[in-house]
Design a protein around this nucleic acid. Structure first.
Lengths: 256, 256
DNA sequence: ATAAAAACTTGTACCCGGTCCATATTCATG
DNA sequence: CATGAATATGGACCGGGTACAAGTTTTTAT
C-alpha cells in the first residue's frame, strides 16, 4: 500500500526529493542568496523550468516542508476536548511535541535534514522573512478557528498571534542551542521549564478566554458548533503540576 | 531656518516627494504589483536608476514613511519614568497617540496620504509582508531594550512581540473602520475601549514584568539614564480609570 | 503491440526588480 | 567663469519568475 504508485508518480516524488536535497546542499555550502535557481537546476540535471514546476518559488525549495504545518495549531484548537482552553490545548500539544522531539520544537537532533534547513534559513534574511510569513498565516488560521467559536475578531487575532509567537520563540531557543552543539537530551529539561514559563506568561493573561463548554453535537466540515445549555463544568486550566501529566506522546501526529 | 537649504537639497527633497506621490497615485490606481518601477520613473519623468537612487527597493516608495518609526517603541520604553513597566509605558503612549490621532494608530482621517498608503498596502500581499517585516524589526529593537535592563532573552522577545503585535492589531482595526467610511471621531471611543481591552489582556500576563525599580548606576551609550532623587510616587500601573488621566498629548513626538 | 491521449520536460524568449558603470549634466565654490 | 563634487542618465547585465511551443515519456485504449 506504499510503493504502488504510478511510475510517473514515483518519478515525480523522486525528482522532487532530488531537487530539495541538491538545493539544500548547495544552499548550505554557499548560502541561499548566492546560489541561483539555474545552478540548482544544473546540479540536479534538470531544466530551470522544471524546478519551477515543482516549486513555485525558490524559497519553497527549502520551506516546502514547513509549509505543511500551517493550520496545525488551528486544527489542534478545533479538536480540543470539552473544558479546555485554546491556550491549554496548544500548551499541552507543544509539551507533547517536545516530548517526542518533534522537529517543529527545534529539538531535532536526530533529524539531520531539519537541522540543515534551520541552519540555511537562519543564515538567509530572505528565508527568515518568508518563514515569518508562514507563521503569520498560521496565526491567521488560528484566529479564524477562534472566531468560529464566537471570539471577537480583535481578541481572536491577539490571542492567536501571541500563542503562535510564543511557540516560535520557544522553538528558536531550542534551535539555537542545538546548533551550539548541545544535544536534545541535554536541552530537554530546560526546554520544558522554559515552555512552562512562556505559556505561564500568557496564561495569566488569556486564562479563561473562550474555554470550550460543550461538545460539538454534530460534525460539520469544520468541527465546532457550541451547544447551548450546559455552561457548567469549569474544571480549570490544568494547574501547574510536575510536568509529567500528559497523555502519551502522539509521536507521529504529523508526518512530513 | 526652514527653507534655506541648498538648491540641491531642495531639489532632492522635491523629486523624492514627487516620486512618492506619483508612485502612490499609480499604485492606488492599478495596484502595487501591476505597476513597474520603470512606469513610475517614466511618469515622474526620471530614469529608472534615479528611482533606485532615492529608494533602495520598490516597496520603499510606499513604506519609507513607516520605516521611520522603527525603534519608537524601544525608545519609549527606554525613556519611561521610574516605577513604570514597559507595558505601562507603551500602553500610555498608545493612548496618547490615539488621542492625537497619530497616523500609526490608524485613526488617520485627516491625513489623506496615510490613508492612501494604508489602502495600497492592504491590497498588496507583498507590501503587507514587508510591513510585517518592519514590525518584526521594531519588536527586535524593543526586545533589545528590555534585555538591556536585564530581562532574559526569551522573556524579552516574548513580551516585545506581544506588545508590538497588540498595537498592530489595534491599528489594523482602526484602519479597517476608517476605510469603511467611519470618521475618526466616531471611532475614537471604541478605539480607546478596545485598546484598554487589548492591553488589559496583556497586563495580567506581564503585569509586573521588569518594573523599573532603581536607576541604572551609570549611563551607557544607549540613551537612558533616569535622574535619581525622586523615585517615590509609586502611582504604579495606572489603574483603569475613566480614560482621561493621561498627560497632555504629545502631538508631534514624531514628525513625518 | 501499438497508436493516440495525457502528463511532463525542455529550450527560448521575455518581463521585472535591482546593480553596475561610464558618461553627461547640474550645482557649488573659489 | 572655471573647476570639482554631487547627481542623473542610459545601457548592459543578473537572477527570479512566466509563457509557450515543441519534444519526450508514461498511460490508456484498442
Amino acid at each position: 500500500m506504499e510503493g504502488q504508485l504510478n511510475l510517473r508518480e514515483r518519478k515525480k516524488q523522486a525528482t522532487r526529493l532530488l531537487l530539495m536535497e541538491t538545493a539544500l546542499a548547495l544552499f548550505e555550502e554557499r548560502g541561499f542568496d548566492d546560489v541561483s535557481v539555474a545552478e540548482v537546476a544544473e546540479a540536479a540535471e534538470v531544466s530551470k523550468a522544471t524546478v519551477f514546476n515543482y516549486f513555485p518559488t525558490k524559497e519553497d525549495l527549502v520551506l516546502a516542508g514547513a509549509k505543511y504545518h500551517i493550520g496545525e495549531a488551528a486544527q489542534i484548537v478545533r479538536e480540543r476536548p470539552v473544558g479546555q482552553t485554546p491556550h491549554g490545548a496548544l500548551r499541552q500539544y507543544f509539551m507533547e511535541m517536545l516530548r517526542s522531539r518533534e522537529p517543529l520544537t527545534g529539538l531535532s537532533d536526530h533529524h539531520p535534514v531539519v537541522m540543515r534547513v534551520h541552519r540555511v534559513v537562519s543564515r538567509s534574511p530572505e528565508l527568515t522573512l518568508k518563514a515569518m510569513h508562514l507563521r503569520h498565516r498560521s496565526a491567521e488560521l488560528l484566529a479564524e478557528a477562534l472566531m468560529e467559536e464566537g471570539g471577537s475578531e480583535l481578541t481572536a487575532r491577539l490571542v492567536a498571534s501571541q500563542l503562535m509567537h510564543t511557540q516560535h520563540v520557544l522553538s528558536q531557543m531550542n534551535v539555537h542551542r542545538i546548533h551550539s552543539g548541545e544535544s536534545s537530551e541535554e536541552i530537554y529539561p530546560d526546554a520544558v521549564a522554559t515552555a512552562e514559563h512562556a505559556f505561564g506568561l500568557l496564561e495569566h493573561g488569556i486564562g479563561d478566554f473562550m474555554r470550550r463548554e460543550a461538545e460539538p453535537s454534530d460534525a460539520f466540515d469544520v468541527a465546532f458548533h457550541v451547544e447551548p445549555g450546559h455552561a457548567g463544568a469549569e474544571g480549570g486550566g490544568h494547574r501547574r503540576t510536575a510536568e509529567g501529566e500528559f497523555r502519551e506522546a502522539p509521536a507521529d501526529r504529523d508526518r512530513r
